[in-house]
């Protein structure tokens, strides 16, 4: 049968940085085709298709549609596969090869992680589950 795609509304203006992304304005309606764990969602709307940051999208079906995982305060061990320098004060700066504990996997691709008792946000794109093959 037909695949029913979830409908989302853009909550901000987003200007694309590559041809594979979409530019949207606040209030634009989009269908989400694929949700990547790194926070980029493949969307279609108004005859266009491309990637959008999940952080700019809210579900039309209402906020009771819970997809977000619960935090895991014990932490799940991940390895940093690409270094990142914090831009905002609630982010962590880490180098390639560092080991961290993932506390909360947020859909927007910015996960809450802990290292040396310090907690902050880090791009999930630069993390890999410890022991996993790339």
């Amino acid at each position: 049968g037909p695949v029913l795609l979830q409908t989302y509304r853009s909550i901000g203006d987003y200007q694309k940085n590559s041809k594979y992304e979409l530019s949207v304005g606040t209030g634009d309606i989009l269908e989400v085709v694929e949700k990547s764990e790194n926070g980029w969602w493949f969307c279609q709307g108004d005859g266009k298709r491309g990637w959008l940051p999940a952080a700019y999208l809210e579900p039309m079906d209402g906020p009771d549609e819970i997809e977000e995982q619960e935090p895991n305060y014990e932490g799940e061990v991940y390895t940093v596969v690409k270094g990142y320098e914090s831009v905002q004060e609630d982010e962590l700066s880490l180098g390639e090869g560092d080991t961290v504990e993932v506390i909360h996997k947020l859909l927007d691709g910015w996960w809450v992680i802990r290292r040396d008792e310090v907690t902050g946000y880090f791009p999930s794109m630069y993390l890999q589950k410890a022991g996993a093959k790339p």
Partner: peptide, 22 residues
């Protein structure tokens, strides 16, 4: 391929949503 997500981390949530999360 177009079906590969961008190589850079997506931007953080716009300010309005960050307030809602807090």
């Amino acid at each position: 391929s177009i079906h590969q997500p961008p190589m850079n981390p997506p931007p953080r949530p716009p300010a309005e949503q960050r307030r809602k999360q807090a």
